[in-house]
């Protein structure tokens, strides 16, 4: 693998970082964990801007929210005491399911968000958990910071272009969450995964490797609404009902590893299991 890099920078402030990015145009890329750097072996990329010196690795709980710096690694997410809460289980599970230990040590929260093409479990968990992103942008030479809802779908993700993800902000509460995924081996990108979370009396679901014609992350609001009614009390056939709702809301995405209808069927199974985990019911009957 040969990158045509001519320049490496390690800025120490967000301002400096965004100035560099702006100055280099399309030839520069932000470098966080670098786990996907090999995929960038193209001539156009001549400059990497390493984020390691930026102060973006904090984990801070404040009242009803938890702020996770974009440079927090997945390995740290797995063992971080602040995440040891039932409502954040989906994020812990997503971090632990990512690739292997050495890559978890490198991969960062911000990096997973930026490289996501609907194939990443961490973003799926974040979407279900109602995360917001703290972003910094360069607007007319000024650095502007803003908070935005988690971007779901290609268009929302495209809006991140040129921005620096500084942190993820997660609401804290009393709910539960779970992420269920399925790959061919224990160390595999999943054929599908579904995250479910209960929060403030409602259920939220998100799924990846779904979507008509292209893999993408999507939320499943109709199934969520149906399942929200089951938080206190569930009909005996809730699994069957949930399955039908999920199948109706999931599109079939086909790639060389799975056909569309199998993947939709599998996603429905994973969705029912994630819901069962949130409800505290047996996942497999």
């Amino acid at each position: 693998m040969y990158l045509a890099l001519e320049r490496y920078s390690r800025p120490s402030t967000v301002h400096e970082c965004l100035e560099l990015l702006h100055a280099q145009g399309g030839r520069a890329a932000l470098l966080s964990g670098g786990t996907d750097l090999h995929a960038r072996a193209d001539e156009a990329l001549t400059h990497v801007i390493d984020l390691q010196a930026l102060p973006l690795a904090e984990v801070r709980a404040s009242g009803d929210s938890l702020r996770l710096g974009a440079r927090v690694t997945l390995a740290r997410l797995r063992r971080e005491p602040a995440l040891a809460r039932p409502e954040l289980a989906a994020l812990r599970e997503a971090a632990g399911a990512y690739a292997v230990v050495a890559l978890q040590n490198r991969a960062t929260l911000g990096g997973r968000i930026m490289v996501d093409r609907g194939t990443e479990d961490v973003p799926t968990a974040l979407a279900a958990l109602g995360a917001e992103l703290a972003l910094a942008r360069r607007v007319d030479g000024q650095i502007v910071t803003e908070r935005e809802p988690y971007p779901v779908g290609q268009r929302a993700r495209a809006a991140l272009e040129g921005a620096l993800v500084c942190a993820v902000v997660l609401p804290l509460g009393t709910g539960k969450s779970a992420l269920r995924r399925f790959g061919r081996t224990a160390v595999d990108q999943p054929l599908a995964s579904v995250a479910a979370a209960s929060r403030a009396g409602a259920i939220h679901l998100a799924a990846n490797v779904q979507g008509p014609g292209a893999a993408d992350l999507r939320t499943l609001p109709r199934t969520g609404a149906l399942a929200s009614a089951w938080l206190a009390d569930r009909p005996a056939d809730w699994r069957a009902q949930a399955r039908v709702a999920l199948l109706g809301e999931l599109a079939a995405f086909e790639d060389p590893w799975a056909s569309g209808d199998y993947r939709r069927d599998l996603s429905a199974t994973l969705g029912v299991r994630a819901l069962a985990a949130v409800f505290g019911e047996p996942e497999i009957v």
Partner: peptide
Amino acid sequence: FRHYKQFSSLD
């Protein structure tokens, strides 16, 4: 190796 999946120690 990311898509050609051998058994791992976890399998």
